[in-house]
Design a binder for these strands. Sequence first.
DNA 1: TCTTGATGCTCTAGTCACTAGAGAGATTAT
DNA 2: ATAATCTCTCTAGTGACTAGAGCATCAAGA
Lengths: 137, 137
Amino acid sequence: MLSIGELSIKTGVKVPTIRYYEQMNLVTAPERSEGNQRRYTTVELERLTFIKHARDLGLKIDAIRELLDLSAHPEQPCADANRIAEDHLSATRKRIAQLQRLEAELMRITEGCHGDSIKDCYVIQSLSDHALCKDTH
Amino acid sequence: MLSIGELSIKTGVKVPTIRYYEQMNLVTAPERSEGNQRRYTTVELERLTFIKHARDLGLKIDAIRELLDLSAHPEQPCADANRIAEDHLSATRKRIAQLQRLEAELMRITEGCHGDSIKDCYVIQSLSDHALCKDTH
DNA sequence: TCTTGATGCTCTAGTCACTAGAGAGATTAT
DNA sequence: ATAATCTCTCTAGTGACTAGAGCATCAAGA
């Protein structure tokens, strides 16, 4: 039986976050000690590890909830689980591409500034005048 | 004189967002019509364009506030403005690198799944068992 | 047994940058 | 004059936590 603090250390999920997940019904409320403190078993440890891992991969709580529901039905086909992971992969790729465009523009802005007072500052000018942008964004 | 709706169309910032910015003191409260509706001049149009542009680049409101303060003092050196832009550039690069690690792991997970029911699903297994991860994250 | 310090409890409120909706008033076009 | 569209203020909700107050419980040492 683990206390919430021990579970926190084992999973890397902070104590208030564990309580928050319980409130959101992402993990079920565990047994309590005589003094009303939470006591966890390995079942909950595994479930929380799953959640932590999925969160680290950037999956949203709703997606995780769906995956947890799926994993409770081991005889069902796994196409849905794959779809969730693939959707997230494609969203991740889009985000990377977007950030790379921003990176390019930020480089252009910071490298372009050779003035030394604000009135000549390319950073400020670039932000003021959209026409100075190379790409649309 | 522009109404809030016209300003919204010209800048691409939604109407409730403009009012929100006013509440946050990011833009100053404009004049009002006789019937108490907001009326904007080109000064506000330019300022909001600046804000929109900076937000599109992913700058946080606080950073934008700082840049706006800087641009109000044209004789000051522009080192601070450059620093803000460069900080954001380096944060963007870190985020890109992180997302690329996630992309790699998501690819590994989705491509690795050749089972057809949940109990053999590599997606679910990967999330359950951190030891299956190649990299730490 | 007593004490002490760490840990745990619940509850409320704050974060960020908006977004949604209600219900009323203003403006514009016909 | 009327209808359609805007605009007003206000409150509350989003996601995924985080912070803090004020109190209770637990484990270990003296």
